[in-house]
Design a protein around this nucleic acid. Structure first.
Length: 258
DNA sequence: TTGTGTTTTACGACCTCC
DNA sequence: GGAGGTCGTAAAACACAA
């Protein structure tokens, strides 16, 4: 791609490239037998008619004017040319209809290639955005899991102290009764967090943060206010179950799909 | 000047559609 | 079966760094 002298601009959203100055166009464009006469240089006589052999011929690039006309027709006719239009364009440009047809074929191929690059870049950008969000949510989940574990530990310690002081009250009952001093230290939010159902899929790819805190069950007080972790965007289960889907696709894969 | 990488023109093989 | 398409590739033309 280090060659700036590309005459071509591509369809629609593809970047437009400006034509660069070129040396004067060659006077002779027709390479093939039907247009050749006694004035045709011998080096042009090889390839056409004789098949692929054609050694000794020299390939001529089309002039800027020819390229401009071909580009214009390519855009105006949506990359397809009727036979009548092809013949007319070839006559106007002093080319063989086959040269025009081949130019359109090559142009379509080039355009598809560029379009593929463009589509890939767009998909890649979307993927990167989504991937960044996934990473952010992983961090958020990790922090929440840590917080839940800490709160769970505090509850357990409180229960142990209550049992050691001779009281028969359980952590759950004390929480619901609101009688214990230590229970009052915990705000309601923490209690609710301790009740969160933390059943995480084992295959979860969202990092080691999926560890389920053991013994986070305060059954009696959670019956009526059971809550579940819920992603705003509603990650599907397959999100965790198929981590390979979230690896960057190699270019070959994209091409295969396209 | 030369070596190297890219672009452009052209073709053959193969496929699809009428 | 023929016309016209894509795909892969050859080779000339071209740009550019060393």
């Amino acid at each position: 791609m280090n060659r700036p002298a590309d005459h071509h601009q591509f369809f629609m959203q593809l970047p437009v490239q400006q034509p660069q100055p070129q040396p004067p166009p060659p006077p002779q464009q027709q390479l093939c037998a039907p247009m050749m006469d006694e004035q045709t240089p011998p080096f042009l006589a090889g390839r056409c008619g004789g098949g692929a052999a054609g050694r000794g011929e020299r390939k001529r690039r089309f002039t800027d004017e020819q390229i401009r006309s071909l580009e214009s027709m390519f855009h105006a006719h949506h990359a397809k040319l009727e036979p009548r239009e092809k013949a007319e364009l070839a006559r106007e440009l002093g080319l063989q209809p086959r040269q025009v047809a081949i130019w359109f074929q090559n142009k379509r191929a080039r355009w598809r290639s560029k379009q593929l690059e463009h589509d890939y870049a767009a998909l890649r950008a979307k993927f990167d955005t989504l991937h960044a969000r996934v990473e952010s949510l992983k961090q958020e989940k990790l922090a929440l899991t840590t917080q839940i574990q800490e709160l769970s530990e505090r509850l357990r310690e409180r229960d142990d102290r209550a049992a050691g002081s001779g009281g028969a009250a359980t952590a759950s009952s004390s929480s619901c009764n609101g009688g214990e001093e230590e229970a009052e230290e915990d705000d309601k939010r923490n209690v609710v967090l301790a009740c969160v159902d933390m059943e995480a899929p084992e295959s979860c790819v969202l990092g080691g943060a999926c560890a389920t805190p053991a013994d986070v069950s305060v059954e009696s007080e959670c019956d009526d206010q059971q809550q579940h972790l819920d992603y705003d965007d509603g990650f599907p289960e397959s999100f965790c179950a198929t981590p390979e889907l979230w690896e960057p696709w190699p270019l070959m894969e994209w091409n295969a799909v396209a």
